[in-house]
Design a protein around this nucleic acid. Structure first.
Lengths: 350, 350
DNA sequence: CTGTTAGCGCATTCAC
DNA sequence: GTGAATGCGCTAACAG
């Protein structure tokens, strides 16, 4: 078929120079035909160049373009854990939006390690990405926090745009999620359908997102008339297994009249559900469970999980739009959340 | 704090040139101190350069390095859907391994569209990635298949390495998963615990992975003595909703004595489980369900899902190692799978 | 060891 | 419109 005459052995990719020669035009003309702002080059030449490029299977070297132009088409995305549905949904949103803008996204995982996060930001900066999106909060008072802030600030000073998703440690553009208000609303609704005595499973010390959700939940309870004793707030890893462990702790200490356990996110809640079951109890009946996020799988667990819906993929899309200066994205305010009552919290006959 | 003296306004990132000047050495020396193969530069100078770099908050421009070196540190990863746990687990593996090798991974989603996949491969080639990993099979006889093959071949000719994960359309390095053998083993075990009449929910026409699994399942059944009528093989989208729909179809046509439904992957199986429940039946009791992959969530659904375990994250890691020429990765052969019997397929008293 | 110089692939000024 | 020349940030010979 279309052989380039280069033979079948190893070779180097065709360069713009090759294309120009093949088309019998200058480098500049080739460049303009292939990329330069439209309508500047004779259509005759243009066609010749296009044909030559196709014949040579030319693919523009993005790195070279970046160097010459002084700007890239890259978006860097930092998440805690790619396999976590919360983050993978966000990532899917970022990638989808980036694709529309013909941007390429590079992805890295911090594995919830603040030092690692800082390290990654430094590395990723080398790419000179147009945008840097960070999702997943870190402990509020981590020693490296200042350094991260400096690093991000420096990045912005050099023309980059950083966007945070649901974290409020710094003063950068942020896709704000109604964590507090959402949890508050959830608490009220739960009290409304008859629950009174609550427990909470939350993330590690100082995790902002978790803290906000717990605070909101507490506020809602206070307003509506539910009770949450301090000894019924257990800390655990912000993961499925953390949720499992947290629930097991609660159960081992006798449950103590607790009617409903609120886990600060869905993956934890799902783990909690399994812990209930493994303890020989019936989730929803013996103890109700609620989560936060509405990740895809919560529809398929049994009982289906009551949660606060967060449009995860939209978070990712919004983050990128915000970075790109889309006015509508910034004027939309916080991302709305919505309480979704399901079978894991059946109405209680008070 | 450490101000660079550049002021607070917008500025351009410090260049190696700046660092050299600041340190009072030549460009070459600066380059060598910061990157060049170790032990070549006077430690005195080296320190000066390092200090200057820190002071200027220097970050090497990866694009420029790529152009100068003629090689990048990029890995391109192509998956069907980032939010799908199957792919996000694989991605997590690729990213983890890449990180160890100090490689950066760029990610894109084909959304199961062959044309889109081809388009993405073309775009990604512009990055001159060292490696290109494609996961998620496409229909066996898609019109663009030839073009994709050509494109990938051209990429390899120019020095790149392509690795396929669990797809066997082409003749590139591949991380082979025991799809057929795994399903075969599953079928035998299922017959072994008393099941006889089966149904299957599989993916769209010609999806290789799905086809292999179904073939294997059929073979196992044939060998062990189970029955699978052709009208009990239903096709659906290779997604959670596809699984749901497939199961609903089966139920609507009366189930017809079917004791167990095998879904070609776990996300479908999970959807199927929900369909059973929504139809007012009890999964595991009224009809058993089994899947394939062992994605994280199947432990948390009820009943827990019987499946064939595939080390998803390891798939991703292996793919990268294979691309990088790791001998052990290529000599390990196909990735082993393992049948995991759980509550969704309780033993039947024959 | 260190500095000078010539590219790497491409965009873009500047003359023609 | 088109081409020649310059430069982007960096590496890698090449001489000292």
């Amino acid at each position: 078929m279309t052989e380039t005459g280069i033979g079948t052995g190893r070779s180097t990719p065709a360069t713009l120079h090759d294309v120009a020669r093949e088309a019998g035009v200058s480098l500049a003309t080739a460049s303009r035909s292939l990329n330069g702002s439209t309508r500047k080059v004779n259509d005759e030449y243009r066609q010749r160049v296009l044909a030559a490029a196709a014949r040579l299977d030319y693919s523009p070297n993005l790195s070279a373009q970046a160097v010459a132009r002084g700007t890239t088409t890259t978006v860097a995305l930092l998440v805690a854990d790619i396999a976590d549905p919360y983050f993978s949904s966000i990532a899917a949103g970022v990638v989808a939006e980036a694709d529309q803008e013909r941007l390429i996204v590079t992805m890295a995982a911090t594995e919830r390690d603040p030092e690692r996060e800082l390290e990654l930001v430094r590395t990723l900066r080398g790419q000179r990405p147009r945008v840097m999106i960070l999702a997943g909060s870190r402990p509020t008072s981590d020693p490296t926090e200042g350094a991260l802030g400096e690093e991000l600030a420096a990045y912005e000073r050099s023309g980059g745009r950083v966007v945070l998703i649901s974290r409020n440690e710094f003063d950068f553009r942020t896709v704000i999620v109604e964590n507090t208000a959402g949890a508050d609303a959830l608490a009220r609704e739960l009290v409304g359908i008859g629950y009174r005595r609550f427990a909470v499973i939350t993330g590690g010390e100082g995790l902002r997102t978790a803290a906000d959700r717990v605070d909101g939940f507490r506020a809602g309870l206070a307003a509506a008339g539910g009770t949450l004793d301090d000894e019924h707030v257990v800390r655990a890893a912000f993961t499925r297994d953390g949720g499992y462990d947290g629930m097991r702790q609660l159960i081992e200490s006798g449950l103590d009249g607790i009617e409903l356990v609120f886990a600060a996110n869905d993956v934890m809640a799902v783990g909690a559900l399994s812990a209930v079951r493994d303890a020989g109890l019936v989730p929803g009946t013996d103890v109700a469970v609620a989560g936060f996020d509405d990740i895809p799988t919560v529809r398929d667990v049994t009982p289906a999980l009551t949660t606060v819906r967060v449009p995860l993929e939209e978070l990712g899309r919004r983050a990128l739009r915000l970075a790109l200066g889309d006015e509508s994205a910034s004027s939309e305010g916080a991302v709305r959340t919505e309480v979704v009552l399901r079978a894991s919290t059946p109405a209680r006959i008070a």
